[in-house]
Design a binder for these strands. Sequence first.
RNA 1: GCCCCCUUAGCUCAGUAGGAUAGAGCACAGGUUUCCUAAACCUGGUGCCGCAGGUUCAAUUCCUGCAGGGGGCACCA
Length: 539
Amino acid sequence: MIPQIKQIIHNALSSLVEIPVDDIEIEIPTEESFGDIATPIAMKLAKVLKKAPHKIAEDILNKINEKDIFSKVEIAGPGYINFSFSEKFLSNELIKLLKNKKDYFFEDIGKGQKILIEFVSANPTGPLHLGHGRGAALGEALFNLLKFNGYSVEKEYYINDAGRQVNLLGSSVLARYKQLKGLNVKMPQDGYHGNYIVDIAKEFLESGLTEEEMTDHAYKKILSDIKNVLSDFGIFFHHWQSEKALYLQNYVSSAIEELKKKQLIYLKDGAYWFKSTFFGDDKDRVVIKSDGEYTYFASDIAYHKKKIERGYNELINIWGADHHGYIPRIEAVIEAFGYPKDKLRILLVQMVSLLRNGVPVSMSKRTGEFITLKEIADEIGVDTTKFLFLTRRHDSHIEIDIELAKKQSHDNPVYYVQYAHARIKSIFKKFFETAAQKESNIFLTSLNSFNYNLEELRLIKKALLYKMTLANATKSCEPHRITFYLQELASLFHNYYQKFRVLTEDELLTKGRLALCEAIGIVLNHGLEILNVRAPDKM
RNA sequence: GCCCCCUUAGCUCAGUAGGAUAGAGCACAGGUUUCCUAAACCUGGUGCCGCAGGUUCAAUUCCUGCAGGGGGCACCA
């Protein structure tokens, strides 16, 4: 619909000036009386054409002759061109939507380009917390969006199963294990103090495993718990990349060697440094410490090199905002291997702060006093948790009050949207109980002669705009736009539902309204699917 | 000290890659159900869009400075 409008404006402009179709902006007017869509193009062109915006708008308007599509085109304000859709056009589009279902909303933005989204990637040293959950919700929704609009997308979890943190986990478990055996052993410095460490140690008491095997088993146990929580969350990964494997397969050493050959690594104070300043970083970064050990950054170099070499057009990393200082050095890595910096897109997910009755809940890993993702999901529900995460832009802080989230469960935004869907399903259930035909597309034929009222036309327009919302959310990597759109659509529908009856004595009227409901249902269902939230048939 | 993010209604937040009279939910007050689910609907009203400059025909949106909040600045991960 929108591309079609852009093309019409483009054609009208062709004799005046040559500009790319995509530069023609379309917006939804703030006031319904201003029409359905508008373009400020005349104002934009005023400078280039050295003519008054109003005059340009008139020239454009004179060239537009699309009586079938528009019922009204007019110039308003400082030079807007406002378009109102004809009823005929809207009902034709509605028919197309009903025929093609969700494919109606498809726009080939990706054109088959391959994208890898890496997210969560929490260290397997403890349970997932809320920040991971937010990253998970965003990553999954983004995956759905990109996939729907023509990208070939895969999801990956990077497992930090090598290095200091995992060793620390091992020694923490070992200390608890010995304590359980009655030995007077202290926890290691900066060790993990959570209760789950004690639980794992208890399992070892009965397992008969040797102390050497402990570290491996500890992180594998935690990793499998993480997978379970993610699975309950409805999130799955195509790839699980192990950091340790990168070492074992010599990816790390060869990546560092390659940088040495490029003279981007030098020796200073007994350590090897990567010249990230050459690519704009604040300071150079150590890749091999003076004790001969690789740093975490070294394996990250290898990891990102490998990801690119696997043939993706674009890499997306979803990181916690506390990693933002890491961005310049990773971008430096990308450039060091000869790729453009924008091959990698890093989305930072801001902090989630947790309150209980207005009191901040401590999130410290050190003390073990932190609320896990699982606990929150158990308490307020998986759908609510995901939906809440996606009602904010990813780079803005979220504050969640557990008690409030539970209390609000009845006027919670997620129920509001789901309820609209359930209501539609319920109407159809009722209809099919008495209807002769059992297929929902029976009303397509009668639509040509059906006249929708004002509220219905408003709903149709909103449903059709879903395509634009999807496209914008995809291009900007902002799934929260879908969340807001769904709430608006649900609101319109609830309002309509209250005011008009769908199932009536009048067969034509009933079918016309059922067609509308079907369309709204398709949109709600698809939107929730993108957000990875259930669309229930009844509530 | 340096870097990043945030600052919009009482609260939590949207604001479509400058545009028309800046929006929603919650909270607060009142009302709606013989009828497809009241987890719903309707009616009430608020804003120096943090502050000060700048660019522009047009700035909540872009630029600079300042203030406040959060985060980050290891031969840790």
